[in-house]
């Protein structure tokens, strides 16, 4: 037990180191290269005006967002996988992300050209809308996969694929009613995009992540019990349905609010917890924080790739995550 704990600590330290290294690489690379020495100078307050602008207004908020969303999506996926006892569960595949996306599209659609919703206010309202959409999608999935015998993992995931298709179709219908400029913005946002975020986005997402990831860690001991199966959990005195609902609510909230800022980033919630499980094993109180670190690292790395691989053009980070995540998903599928 002790050996395992020290191993987990080592893994966590390595991950944090990897995040820091990627963080500094991300500061240097991008549409224009900034030498590491200049980065250091600028960070300590001795930079030129141009570097100040690029680093503090463009790159830093973007990277903080990548870390927040990566952690949020990963924890969301980790909870889903443990609570449904299904290694292939992911908020993107299950349609929770597209539910949130649909709500945001509706919001954009009805407020375009309206004066009362200032851009600044919108940034804080959008997570709420996304949350409503994510919860609606989750309820629909639960409703349609519910039978007298309960919810089986297979039925849950098939129903999720269907719900995902329905929300995607609705998104297309509303998207095409928008004017061309909003349409393009929505397309880029939907494929998972964190370029062009500023500090207000960080502020709008931060409270959600700061409240709900610790909540997930606090509730993680119930996840261990739920993993033993319903009968065993009831035997151990856990109110199974109440705890599962709470955990699913945390998971859906993290996914929904992350989507509001970062758009539909699929597969991250699937891959990060699976990798974390390989590193530190299935105990949730360790797995959930490590998943958060893995998720933050993966999204930061994907963001760096998305900015540099086809430079000078940028591709939405969600596409990079899919290109990495889908083969891993297929590998898991072959093995299962």
């Amino acid at each position: 037990m002790k050996a395992k704990k020290s191993k987990s600590i080592k893994v966590a330290i390595l991950l944090i180191a990897a995040i820091i290294i990627t963080f500094f690489l991300s500061l240097s690379f991008g549409s224009s290269f900034i030498p590491p020495i200049e980065v250091a100078k600028t960070l300590f307050g001795n930079g030129t005006g141009e570097y100040d602008l690029i680093l503090f207004d463009f790159r830093l908020p973007r990277m903080v967002i990548a870390i927040l969303i990566g952690a949020g999506m990963a924890v969301s996926g980790a909870i889903l996988q443990s609570a449904t006892q299904n290694g292939l569960a992911d908020p993107g595949i299950l349609g929770i992300n597209s539910g949130a996306g649909f709500a945001v599209i509706i919001y954009i659609f009805f407020t375009q050209g309206m004066s009362f919703a200032s851009p600044f206010l919108s940034i804080f309202i959008m997570p709420l809308f996304a949350l409503i959409g994510a919860i609606a999608a989750a309820c629909l999935i639960y409703l349609f996969s519910w039978k007298k015998t309960g919810v089986t993992p297979i039925r849950l995931i098939l129903v999720g694929i269907g719900i995902n298709a329905a929300f995607s179709a609705l998104i297309i219908i509303f998207q095409l009613k928008m004017d061309p400029r909003t349409f393009t913005q929505a397309t880029v946002w939907l494929s998972g995009n964190i370029s062009g975020v500023d500090w207000s986005y960080v502020l709008s997402l931060l409270p959600w992540i700061l409240i709900f990831i610790p909540a997930a860690i606090y509730k993680s001991r119930y996840l261990n019990v739920l993993g033993l199966g319903d009968t065993a959990s009831i035997g151990l005195g856990v109110n199974v349905n109440r705890e599962r609902r709470w955990l699913l609510f945390i998971s859906v909230t993290l996914a929904g609010t992350s989507v509001a800022v970062g758009g539909g980033i699929a597969f991250l919630g699937l891959v990060a917890p699976q990798l974390a499980k390989k590193l530190v094993g299935p105990r949730n109180e360790i797995l959930i924080p490590v998943s958060a670190l893995v998720g933050a690292f993966l999204l930061l790395l994907s963001d760096l790739i998305s900015r540099t691989i086809l430079a000078p053009s940028e591709i939405p980070v969600g596409l990079v995550v899919s290109a990495i995540g889908a083969p891993y998903f297929i590998y898991l599928l072959i093995k299962s």
Binding site: L158, S313, I315, L319, A323, A326
Partner: peptide
């Protein structure tokens, strides 16, 4: 089920590569 999952994974993979090509 595996067929449906493999299909949606391949669809996600191929369409993200096509989008990247299209944007670039």
């Amino acid at each position: 089920v595996k067929l449906a999952l493999a299909g949606s994974a391949i669809t996600a993979l191929l369409s993200s590569i096509s989008s990247a090509i299209a944007i670039h």
